[in-house]
Design a protein around this nucleic acid. Sequence first.
RNA 1: GCACCCUUAGCUUAAUGGAUAGAGUACACGACUCCGACUCGUGCGAUGGGGGUUCGAUUCCCCCAGGGUGCACCA
Length: 582
Amino acid sequence: MDKFSDMISRPLCEAFRACGYDPSYGVVSRSSRPDLCEFQCNGAMSAAKAYKKAPFVIADEVMEKLGECDIYKKAQVVKPGFINIDINEEFLLEYVLEMHESRNFGAEDTGEGETVVIDYGGPNVAKPLHVGHLRPAIIGECLKRLKRACGYNVIGDVHLGDWGLQMGLVIEGLFEKYPLTGNYENYIADNGITISDLEKIYPEASARSKTDEGFSERAHKATFALQSYDAKYYSVWKQIVDISIADLKENYKKLEVDFDIWKGESDAQPYIPDMIEKLVSGGIAYKSENALVVDVKQDDDKIEIPPCIILKSDGASLYTTTDLATLIDREKNYSPDEVIYVVDNRQELHFKQVFRCARKGALIPDKTELVFLGFGTMNGPDGKPFKTRDGGVMRLEDLLGQITDKVRSRMLKAEDISYEEYDANVHHVALSALKYGDLSNQISNNYIFDVDKFCEFEGNTGPYILYTIARINSVCAKYNEKFGKLDSKIFGIYGETDKKIYLTLANFGEMLGNACENNAPHRICQYIYQLCNELNRFYHEIKILSEEDDNKRSSYIGLITFARDILAFCTGILGFSVPTRM
RNA sequence: GCACCCUUAGCUUAAUGGAUAGAGUACACGACUCCGACUCGUGCGAUGGGGGUUCGAUUCCCCCAGGGUGCACCA
């Protein structure tokens, strides 16, 4: 269905057109002065510049043409040339009722027929997830759900780090600790090697390679053997990857993060030889200081962009090579219209090089959009990068445990709730604290990760949102007990407080489209926070259950039920679930 | 050295070039204690500094300061 803002803009746009102005000047937006009006149109002032007329003259002209209009309850010209608008209740009610009947509450399928690959993960095989993996997981998962809700065909790719020197280090480290005796096909199982063994091996091997030259050489050889698909090394590698993936899946599941494909750097390798050949024969790649490079400078660059190295001087590939080859793989298997990289801001230059190189070498179709979505650093309450007390990198598991404990200490168990349900609720609230705390900030900015603050049940937090929903559920349950089940229909607008809620509900489609188009989950957070505030005020001011008028009472319940459904839909997109009661 | 990003109340943060810069938190009063520890209301308080473009700038341009980050074979 059409967006509410489009519908209410239409009469004014027509009026502007009828007066000979560009119709786009008629667009209305939510008022910045709620005390004056509900919506405003600034078009007369913008048009003043273009048509060299006084703003209020234009506004008056437009108002004349507008005449009577059953969408607006009020439309008046104010001071320099604003047009202030209030919405007709009948119209608003009709719109919200239609939303109520529509799939996804009437959100537009703007992405219909488009395929998007989102690359958000990048965990390494045989290494534990740590806080550095948190932001991409949370943001990427949310974007995936958001784009899906807007009709896109979305493919989430974990893009594992499974092919570098780290793998040689791990394999060689393992061989030393668990010498290869029998056949290698069941090496991991035969030796009873677990994921936590693997996680210990890597830091040991990495440290040792810096002091022990012999070991370092063996690790390099192992890496080379693996990358040459030597049967033994490849088999052991595959076993390591398999148990790693199983473990990663479990950990991501706790975060309610889920990937459609579990590809890694290794999957891109087969494309590399042809790709290099294409770039070289096309005259795009050339040797420089023994490395194979591609110039990616452009004339209009303000900054110096160094050439993009695609093969090291020893002929080995590096992450640029892999990222380029991955694009070829994606094109071949999914032919995406858009590829979004959810990665750290610091990788901007790297991806700028990769994108330009891909374009220059025509590795992907011109129409394929490549989006670098850089996120900021997660800092501790002191404003410095988030670390453990002793300065190390915190494991994701530990962080989640910390938050869960904090939430548990603040959440009493209701008597009629089982311990099982209570634990599940604690987990959901903890996850809401974590994810909402992250997503309520703009993606590209650094933000302060403050466990205490995020776990509060008041203020702009995940727990506050869940709490508000749980309270609505409680009121509805009481209503059902007393008056029987409601066939959740919305009946009417009775006052300013509930009209505000209807207006916010009507704005849902636009908000969602906006969040999707701009990759801006914080807009969703802002929206549901506002809605929660309005709801809280509403049932603070209005006693729903003791309302004597049957129509009013059921209308109120219908309204908050619908608002609850929208809230739950939004939290679903943000990536956390809602306990029905707490 | 070169370049990029950031700077908004004590703290955490928001605002397609539009009206009186919007919230949260903290603090101070007050309301409700009725559905749920909550919630609601009032007050307090901010665009780093200096120029420019504009009828109008947190937003665009230039200079300065402070903080962060990146600059050829690590990802």
